[in-house]
Design a protein around this nucleic acid. Sequence first.
DNA 1: AATGAATGAGCTTTCATTCAT
DNA 2: GATGAATGAAAGCTCATTCAT
Lengths: 202, 202, 202, 202
Amino acid sequence: MPKIIDHEARRADLVQAAWRVIERVGLEGATIRAIAGEAGASTAIVTHYFADKREILRAVLSTSQARIEERRRAAVSRHAGIEALEVALLDSLPLDEERRLELLIEVSFWARAIADPESAAEHLKSHDAWRRALVRLLKDCVARGEVPPCNVNEEADMLVALVDGLGVDALMHPDRLSSARQVRLVRAALRRIGRDAPDDAT
Amino acid sequence: MPKIIDHEARRADLVQAAWRVIERVGLEGATIRAIAGEAGASTAIVTHYFADKREILRAVLSTSQARIEERRRAAVSRHAGIEALEVALLDSLPLDEERRLELLIEVSFWARAIADPESAAEHLKSHDAWRRALVRLLKDCVARGEVPPCNVNEEADMLVALVDGLGVDALMHPDRLSSARQVRLVRAALRRIGRDAPDDAT
Amino acid sequence: MPKIIDHEARRADLVQAAWRVIERVGLEGATIRAIAGEAGASTAIVTHYFADKREILRAVLSTSQARIEERRRAAVSRHAGIEALEVALLDSLPLDEERRLELLIEVSFWARAIADPESAAEHLKSHDAWRRALVRLLKDCVARGEVPPCNVNEEADMLVALVDGLGVDALMHPDRLSSARQVRLVRAALRRIGRDAPDDAT
Amino acid sequence: MPKIIDHEARRADLVQAAWRVIERVGLEGATIRAIAGEAGASTAIVTHYFADKREILRAVLSTSQARIEERRRAAVSRHAGIEALEVALLDSLPLDEERRLELLIEVSFWARAIADPESAAEHLKSHDAWRRALVRLLKDCVARGEVPPCNVNEEADMLVALVDGLGVDALMHPDRLSSARQVRLVRAALRRIGRDAPDDAT
DNA sequence: AATGAATGAGCTTTCATTCAT
DNA sequence: GATGAATGAAAGCTCATTCAT
């Protein structure tokens, strides 16, 4: 069934084009014309493969999220315990151009997710997966004795928030938050897990 | 004599209208028409008081930031040491509707700040003030012996990132991150300041 | 009655401001705002003294025409015969900055006069005065024997057309038609009056 | 395959529509809406075929100029010597509705050309071609002995000015300057070429 | 007399989308 | 499958004008 492969390949081309456009001019500037132009195609082709503008943007986001998840899964699989946890967290920071762009797209969709419930639901799925992965890794660390017993759910929330905040801060003020500094801060946070834990569990 | 109107008050009215529009339909939906409609005025009135669309949006952002800063300053001024620090951090979380909306506006502008250098500069100013305030509070805590000696600059970065991340996560997934949970996580972070500090200082 | 004087003076100020605006940005760019700004007044003042935008523009044109006529009358009065005729013609060319601007305004209104009958009527009056003055001067020349007997009406038409065409050509292409060249051409035309006259009279 | 449409033909349609609009309401009234309406299309179609409003107006002007030149070239090619010269000059007068409209458009752009250097340059090209053609015809007349030896450059300037002035005067005051009278005046001017020439050459 | 406030209409331009081929 | 043509809606913005003071 070569047709289907072509179809998917064509969609992927367009998503990549949209990607580049967002990088260049931001999510607001990502018009269908701009995307089609970047892909070297007519505007109608976008509607042909995506029915809607929202659909291609959704595809952009989910493609990015899938790529992030996949890379993280691969990275984590090569380690265990506290090392795996560290790898997972560091992998989520905008430490190189690829991840910087991924996060830029993510953040661009945040504002939309807050206003639009449908986008929020979309976002929640990926966010949950990431959080659950962290909980799993934390539990493993506790089991191995590399981390003191603690409320892993809340520790996961804290780590997610830290990585999200660090990422967006670094994106906006790269001079202030160098890659080295981001790494140092995450490592410090790791060392503190379970210390002076929250009073009550949830 | 022309009708005497408080120019600044009228501007403030329009900024508030823009505010409500952003809350309702997001930053993208905040058209001049929508803002004027919300204010019960004609579209031309917006250009009458604000040279540009960018100018009114800039006013929305800076008004919001000024309000945040002012409220925080007032809150902090009633405490000292670790309590003042805690008050400052908690005050920055979207724990009530007012702060939820302020943060929503802030996040809406984030994506813009990443793409547009001018917006980034604007943002940096407010961000810096917030960060410097935290450093000052941390130094005070250390001086009082309420917090162990530590690299206050990096601790401030960490707290800023935590609050930013916690805020945006709570905004997108309010069910996941209740107000109580946000408070608990910030308190835990406070207790851990200076413990297992980063290896090297900066 | 100082009030009336003030009133007229104020109108004259505004007309002059409009004048300068037209010079700077053309008739199309001469908005009420621009005129008021140039005069250092509010936009409402223009409507206060002129009821209409058309009215102030009409005032600009007629003021300019009056000035042209007055200057020409004064110049002509100091000469007689063929010399007076020459002075009248040369005075109508854009040979200095003052007359260049007057003609610029004149030409700007031409297009309007062609389309709008009311403007055309306005224009016809001044045009007629100019043409009749030429006829009078021509008759005087014939009477003095400085010019051969001829159809003075058609000769006047010819001279009017020549001066109009020379003026607009010089305005658009000053490098091509220097002041000296314009003068030379008009003098040549003067010398030819009545030679090889049109076949039949009108 | 998309609907096949002659791109150039469609552009020409729109240019013609703009033409008619300018005739009806003047250059100032020639809004995109009006043009689209006249063409029986949506406003967006204009931007589809012409990047800009300026572009379609430029197309209107250059189309008109091309048409004038082409017709004149054809008319002249059928004659020689003084007859060719006469044909060229008479062809430039607004003697019928077609040429009246062409000149109206030309004059409408004059005011713009005076203020805007870019428009002036555009205009200079067509003006130059016309002037050079006259010089060529004049030289031919001299060579044939139909016209006395003279400064052909200045004679050309004079004829250009006369035709321009006659045209605009006739346009504004058709009752004053009938077609017959325009023709008579041009013929008289032709007969006078080279008589009592300017003192010095250039 | 003078003016800031306010407006409605209209401008050019851009957008996402639909349609016929 | 692919695309140029075409459009309606809406965007930001400017304009001349009116009004109350």
